[in-house]
Nucleic acid binder design. Structure first.
Lengths: 341, 341
DNA sequence: GATAGTCACGCAAACGGTTTCGTGTTGATA
DNA sequence: TATCAACACGAAACCGTTTGCGTGACTATC
């Protein structure tokens, strides 16, 4: 088991100084061609690679970026992660992943673990609990230390930093308008608690579309479901009570569950009830009928977030007043068989 | 923007030496109670945290583990990742994620990026291309350098290291036996190319179950599908040609697609055709009918892999001859509505 | 032949910690 | 009062790199 070879080993072996070796390997003009060739050959033979940790310490740059997301077993977040990872790797960065599990405490802990030199910057999406508590001190700590931060999807106005968000309101507006144009009038909104700001935005779009088309917003048509719970009974009661002819769901899981209940109750999809969901994942694609859904372009989102972050990281202008950007990813409606074209 | 505070700053400010500060913060007996208190208070006030990079360099231990997986937008791998991350975090380790995208080149590149000091060890699952090429030199390089490696799920006998695998053959045997006990005789196997050793193992179980029950194996009942392609036509033709009364699929996507085709063709599930898949993901859970499937317990697998790795990392016995372990995760059959109980 | 200018390399500090060992001061002891 | 241990702290090496600067040797110039 040969341990990693270092500059010191090469220097000793070739009877030159460490600095000479270092410079020779960087093809410095200072070193003579002969010496360079000798050293480079030796290094190549023994497969020398500089120790990342030492380089990091010296350069004060780790080439690591920390990604803190609420959930990893989740289609949207994995696609974003994928986008981040692809872009970052192409730029020579590694990605350290931390999952907050929708927990405030774990989010704080993760950031503390990484903010002591392990990463050059953070990309994150707020946990549910953090959004509930509205406590962003851990983010302020990090930015105060000068560590760049990019928020995506679940963001907050309380923190000044680069952000990447979806045009949630607009796409929800578009989806509902599609229903209305198709003659639907009793359009349900199936959503989560409102402390998720994305749900809130989608809800705004839902309402705006109604108002703009002269249709009153009926609060009874809004159903709030909980993640990772059995919602089928609640859905059934909802469908029985209300006369629904279209449903907009804030995620694909809710949509598929609702469709399942509707089918069991004897409704025809899309004739009796049309469905549109959010997230174009395997559920949407493989549902029966295939679900019309909002593609959030997670990979794009991740790539943009990574680009923003790396630009900040590599920007060494010492300006104190930074112009933070908010990039908007345009969602698109993918029409399948749960709506009438 | 206050930069991070260092030992040096504290030392200068309190007019003591750096070593005194370091020792005081570790509550060393060498330092007087007064001095310790003073230093600790100061450090706490300025929120001093040791720089991870410097500590890593000194200790030759990064507290990072590298995870290289073929795909991240994939239920099974995300659950394993989740298990790794949970266990590792609890032990104070961070997880650096690299996605090989089923590509040999990216797998090699990822490992090179991380093997120069960035991580203390690797957990990985082989990419499809790596399994095809049968080229494991990048793994040998890493282990030769004394960096611990744990392989999971997609493993190879060519590398001596700790491994975590599923009892694929046995659980496939069990699934097929369930079909046979239920009176099924024309049992299809829907699988991928055989260079995936997990598919191979499942195929072995499928065959063994047939032989042990005196049923000849019929190669015509084996359908090979491709990932991320439109398979529906191929499935339809297969079902038309063969008289199938049960289907074992090596993943949930294939199972759901097959069920969809079967339903469209007018078959009753599970009466006419029963289905069993692999992976207990959202597809299985939300399919119509809900899919009977093999739960692979990815989180458990990840946790075990992380445990094995961290044990190796923290084991400082200098023994050259290591006794490598292979842990087997017991899969379980989750019975839902696509089979008759 | 004295001076200046290259060239090719080494020294040493620096990054931010940890840790071994040495040392000045104090108080107790004989 | 000389001796010594205990105490409390500092100096310095070390982890593996990078890099500014110093310097000795050689060559070129007048």
């Amino acid at each position: 088991m040969k341990r990693k070879i270092t500059l010191k080993h090469i220097a000793r072996e070739l009877d030159v100084s460490i600095s000479t070796v270092s410079k020779a390997l960087k093809n410095s003009e200072e070193i003579s061609a002969d010496t360079k060739e000798k050293i480079q050959a030796f290094a190549k033979f023994y497969n020398y690679k500089p120790n990342n940790i030492a380089v990091s310490l010296k350069n004060k740059s780790t080439k690591n970026i920390g990604v803190v997301i609420p959930d990893i077993v989740h289609h949207f977040f994995t696609t974003v992660f994928r986008g981040i990872e692809l872009y970052a790797n192409a730029k020579g960065y590694n990605v350290i992943a931390c999952v907050s599990d929708e927990s405030f405490a774990k989010e704080v802990l993760s950031m503390e673990m990484l903010s002591n030199g392990s990463v050059d910057g953070f990309i994150m999406s707020l946990s549910a609990e953090t959004q509930q508590k509205n406590d962003f001190n851990h983010l302020k700590e990090v930015t105060a230390q000068g560590i760049p931060l990019v928020l995506f999807d679940r963001v907050t106005d309380d923190i000044k930093c680069d952000k990447v968000i979806l045009n949630d309101k607009e796409i929800a507006y578009e989806a509902v308008t599609k229903f209305i144009d198709g003659g639907r009038r009793r359009i349900a909104l199936v959503t989560t608690e409102s402390y998720f700001n994305v749900s809130e935005k989608r809800s705004e779009g839902y309402k705006a579309a109604h108002l703009d088309h002269g249709i009153p917003v009926n609060e009874d048509l809004c159903l709030i479901l909980h993640h990772k719970e059995i919602n089928l009974q609640a859905i059934k009661i909802f469908f029985e009570k209300q006369q629904i002819d279209a449903v907009l769901c804030v995620n694909e899981l809710f949509a598929v569950q609702c469709m399942g209940v509707a089918l069991k109750m004897g409704f025809q999809i899309p004739e009796d009830i049309s469905f549109i969901g959010f997230t174009d994942g395997i559920l949407s694609q493989n549902a029966q009928p295939a679900l019309t859904t909002v593609a959030q372009h997670g990979e794009k989102m991740g790539a943009v977030a990574a680009e923003l972050l790396i630009n900040r990281v590599e920007d060494d202008s010492q300006e104190e007043s930074i112009n933070y950007l908010t990039e908007i990813i345009e969602a698109t409606l993918i029409e399948r068989d749960s709506t009438i074209n």
